[in-house]
Amino acid sequence: MLTMKSTPNHTGVKISGDYFDLDELNQAIYRVIGQEDQYYGYEGSRMRILGISYEIRHAAQGDRNVDFVFNGLHDHTMKQHGFIAPDKNIYFSTEILWPELIYAVIALKDFVKFYQEEKQFPLWDIHLPVISRFQSLVLDCLQGHVPQEEFAMILKSFNQPVTVNDYAIQYVDFLNLKYIGMTKQQREQSLSAIAMKIAVQDQDYTAFRNQVLAAAAPHKKSIHEITVQAEYPEDFEW
């Protein structure tokens, strides 16, 4: 079963599951976000979601964290059925920064909409429920770390018809780096504000986007092709 929990220092979210859980999620993501350049104005968002998919794929391959999780098998069950088996399953996991994951939840709304429009019977599609559960798990994890009244505002904002078409994805890097640089207490206090910034696209985002557009215009580049100058630290506490 796919699970999510905030990391010890609230820097991100630990996504855990067995091989099949993670592979199922990965396959659903690949299907829903479509092919390269399939959706004009969404290539940057697609790249960011693929970054998360990359981590999930490597987790499933055992390249990240390996955990042992109780599987519900008790001694009396083994005696009753006459066999001996491990009482723990192997789970794989990886950590994703909070701003990165929150943005993915928002961006996937647009991709899900496009995917549904291309399906004759989307209600019976096998991949859409997997994406929906992934989004719900992120929000459920977020709910456990922000005040209830603030979470209600976040949930309301997430339900607004805001598009990430031509989104300045560099803003996610800006929020990621800012969040990494905070103390644990500062992260706890600012998590809801960051979630709102991603969901609402406020004046700060608009000003940031205009700067990126100004940098892109002379070179006739797409907005997602402009790289940020700051670099991620090699090591930080999750």
Rank of each mutant, 00 (worst) to 15 (best):
G62P: 08
A195H: 10
S222G: 12
V212R: 03
Y232C: 09
L177R: 15
Q27G: 01
A215Y: 05
P129K: 06
Q211E: 15
K184H: 01
E150L: 01
D173Y: 09
L50C: 07
L137K: 15
I226Y: 09
V164A: 13
L73K: 11
K184I: 03
D173G: 10
Q80V: 00
Y171K: 05
F121T: 12
S6C: 08
E117F: 01
A199I: 01
D140V: 03
P8L: 05
P122D: 07
L139K: 13
A230W: 04
Q203D: 15
I84S: 14
A215N: 09
M4Y: 02
G12Y: 10
H145S: 08
E231S: 14
P122H: 04
L25E: 11
Q160I: 00
L175C: 07
T94W: 06
Y30I: 07
V228D: 10
S157M: 14
P122L: 10
S6W: 01
G82E: 00
Y232N: 14
Q186Y: 02
D67E: 15
T77F: 04
V69H: 02
D75E: 12
P161L: 15
S45W: 01
Q186V: 05
V212M: 12
G44A: 00
N165V: 00
E43Y: 08
Q201W: 06
E117A: 06
F134V: 00
A152L: 15
W98S: 09
A214D: 12
I169N: 02
L2H: 02
L50K: 07
E24W: 05
G51K: 08
S222E: 14
F151W: 04
L213C: 04
V105E: 10
V228C: 10
L101S: 05
L128K: 00
I49Y: 06
V200I: 15
G44R: 00
T77N: 05
Y171V: 04
G17S: 06
Y30Q: 11
Q35K: 14
H224S: 11
P161N: 13
G44D: 05
L142S: 05
W238S: 09
Y19H: 03
V69E: 11
D204A: 13
S16W: 01
A216K: 00
L155C: 06
K5N: 11
T11W: 03
F92S: 02
R209I: 03
F134E: 07
Q80W: 09
Q211W: 00
V66W: 03
L2T: 02
S6V: 11
S6G: 04
P161T: 06
I169P: 02
E100D: 14
F68A: 09
L50H: 08
I106G: 01
L101T: 10
I180T: 05
Q120Y: 00
A60M: 06
A207H: 08
E225P: 04
Q35V: 11
W238K: 12
R133Q: 03
M47K: 11
I33H: 02
H58C: 07
Q160M: 14
S93R: 09
G51S: 12
F151S: 07
K178S: 13
H10D: 04
D21Q: 05
T183W: 08
A168F: 08
M196P: 06
L25M: 11
K156E: 13
V228L: 11
W238G: 07
